[in-house]
Amino acid sequence: MSGFDKVVHSYEEAMSGLTDNMTIIAGGFGLCGIPENLISEIKRKGTRGLTLISNNCGVDDFGLGLLLPDRQIKKIIASYVGENAEFERQMMSGELNVELTPQGTLAEKMRAGGAGIPAFYTATGVGTLVAEGKDERQFKGRDYILEESITADFAIVKAWKADRYGNLVFRKTARNFNPMAATAGKITVVEVEEIVEPGQLDPDEINTPGIYVNRLIQSTFEKRIEQRTTRPSGE
């Protein structure tokens, strides 16, 4: 097989090398586009002391929330964490260190981290708790704060389709943080619904090039919906 072939055949292999106290960047927004089986594998492994970077932390019994009962997460960097009772309990009791970060800043921290940019200035958070302890500087008469970028030992990513070389295509709003997460892991692990042969994806349609991807695994997904909202048919 080609040296570009990223496919692995077990979740154990997909997450091998993950050890206590590592950092993990996870893609997903709410429960949409989360690497649900990779998260379950981390739960199964029982790895502890983890620092997680993810927009949200799942719900009590799905997504990253699964890592809470066994106290596997030491710290989380997220923008919104309101959907999870056990999370709230651990945060209030001080068992879990939470660093709330504006969503756009979080996305940019991942993007910059993956692009080798150590820090950037942004107007987001100026004059708020987020600005505390950060460098402030004016450009063209406006105040900005300096935000450091993020990289991690592992990035865990959910895509829709991939070829064996790890070229990725995302589907609808399940894309969200996944492309940036993919660039920011020392080891980037991607799970997908379908793997095709190299050449079968249109190069113009690839969202994330395989250069960022180290391991690729095909699986099936529950894709739980957080807020099912509908209108009557015929309207």
Partner: peptide, 22 residues
């Protein structure tokens, strides 16, 4: 708008995490 029951897609939500359409 929100989808009909037949059109609900777990991969298509808004910032409030509600299912939507394009």
């Amino acid at each position: 708008a929100f989808p009909t029951d037949d059109d609900v897609d777990a991969d298509l939500i808004n910032a409030g995490k509600q299912t939507v359409t394009m």
